[in-house]
Amino acid sequence: MWCFILAELLVFGVFFLAYAFARTHDVELFNASQLELDRTSGFINTMLLISGSYFVVLAVHRIRHGHSRACTRWLIAAMACGAAFLVLKLVEFSGKIEAGISMSTNTFYMFYLGLGFFHFMHVVLGMVILGAVTLKAWRGGYHATDYAGVETGAAYWHMIDLVWIVLFPLIYLLN
């Protein structure tokens, strides 16, 4: 799993740097377009992902003590955060699409929509993985001595969080 996580970090990292250096060619355009974003929505989404990550930590903590039920509950809480993130993100995207904005509008929007959508799909994938882990935990498939699956799912979820922690200031805040 970890080599996969590293590969993902690499892809995102390259995209982030591509954004940062593409921006140097047209700072005005990037700054102007950035102001059109819903910064508050991005802020709330950051809080959601961080909280989701925190809940996943608690879930791992619980299963380490063999508490399957509590682990399941915290995983569900984490997925709820993920779902809320997805909904907010969809609202953000649909607003842009209604305004006639697409990846071809300009380079900034290519990154905002492209990277955002790429990350969005990762959250979906992360939720699928957490869902599988939750199901197994709920059925009592993990124990205090055997919870590698929870840790692996957790690691992936944290990776998605980590990526967003960089993405949010980069695309929403810094100008």
């Binding site: 590969a7 690499l10 892809v11 390259v14 995209f15 492209g114």
Partner: peptide, 18 residues
């Protein structure tokens, strides 16, 4: 094709040697 492919194509195919 749209120009964003220059970004997507470059980023991902730069990783293709891996």
């Amino acid at each position: 094709a749209p120009e964003y492919w220059q970004w997507w194509g470059s980023v991902f195919s730069a990783l293709e040697p891996i």
